[in-house]
């Protein structure tokens, strides 16, 4: 564990967690890590995650912004700082909170639709299609495909393609222990993983539609 900053790659963006108020050291360490990572994170968004104890002034924020832009990353959000920090962040046109999944507005019947439970690996060239929800215990390998008219839960890795809400349900979600898909689809929307990025260790995640695009964020369990 680094003493100054922890860096985590997630599909939502690169999460920076400073461990110190010594910004010079923090930014130095960050620069070093980005340099070493080469093209690995390029094109991604950056989320700075602060604790209320962190101070952050305009100059530091501008320096951080400049630094990440040098590596073709975009500073997207600064979360968790105290009120003063949050005000500064908003002034700079950045988010202070990450988008939350929508509260499902579906009727009870749809919510309690039946789920199909499948235990296997979906290998390259194999396709699993479910008319309601589907729970897969196993991996979706590259070239494999899982499709459901309702929600998809994968107790394993999604490395191939997943399509939830296949008949047009925009409230459908895709949840997996590890989401590293070639492609995700919900209703009529499609996202693909950025070209050239390598799979990385991951945490459970959920994908859903927000503001007409598919967003992916940590899935901490529960009904989201």
């Amino acid at each position: 564990m680094n003493q100054f900053i922890v860096i985590k790659g997630t599909p939502q963006g690169l999460r920076l967690q400073p461990r110190s108020n010594n910004w010079e050291q923090v930014l130095n360490t960050l620069q070093h890590s980005l340099q070493e990572a080469g093209d690995f994170f390029r094109g991604g968004r950056v989320i700075l995650e602060l604790s209320p104890q962190h101070s952050l002034n305009e100059v530091t924020l501008a320096t951080l912004r400049e630094l990440v832009e040098k590596y073709e990353l975009t500073l997207w959000a600064v979360t968790g700082g105290n009120l003063k920090v949050q005000r500064l962040v908003r002034q700079q046109g950045l988010r202070t909170k990450l988008p939350q999944p929508p509260v499902p507005r579906r009727d009870a019947a749809a919510k309690e639709a039946n789920a199909q439970l499948v235990e296997r690996t979906l290998r390259s060239g194999q396709r699993l299609q479910a008319t309601q929800h589907v729970i897969l215990v196993g991996d979706v390998n590259p070239g494999g495909e899982i499709v459901a008219n309702g929600n998809i839960i994968v107790w394993g890795r999604v490395l191939g393609t997943a399509h939830a809400g296949a008949t047009g349900d925009r409230f459908a979600t895709i949840r997996a222990l590890e989401l590293n898909p070639a492609q995700l689809r919900i209703a009529g929307l499609i996202t693909r993983s950025p070209e050239g990025t390598k799979p990385r260790p991951s945490e459970p995640e959920i994908a859903y539609i927000q503001e007409n695009s598919i967003v992916v964020e940590p899935w901490s369990g529960g009904g989201k």
Binding site: R123, S124, G125, Q126, N141, P142, G143
Partner: peptide, 17 residues
Amino acid sequence: EVPAVRDADRVIGLLEA
């Protein structure tokens, strides 16, 4: 290499099925 592993996965799927 990725293409060879992909084909291997496909073959395993066929044999399992």
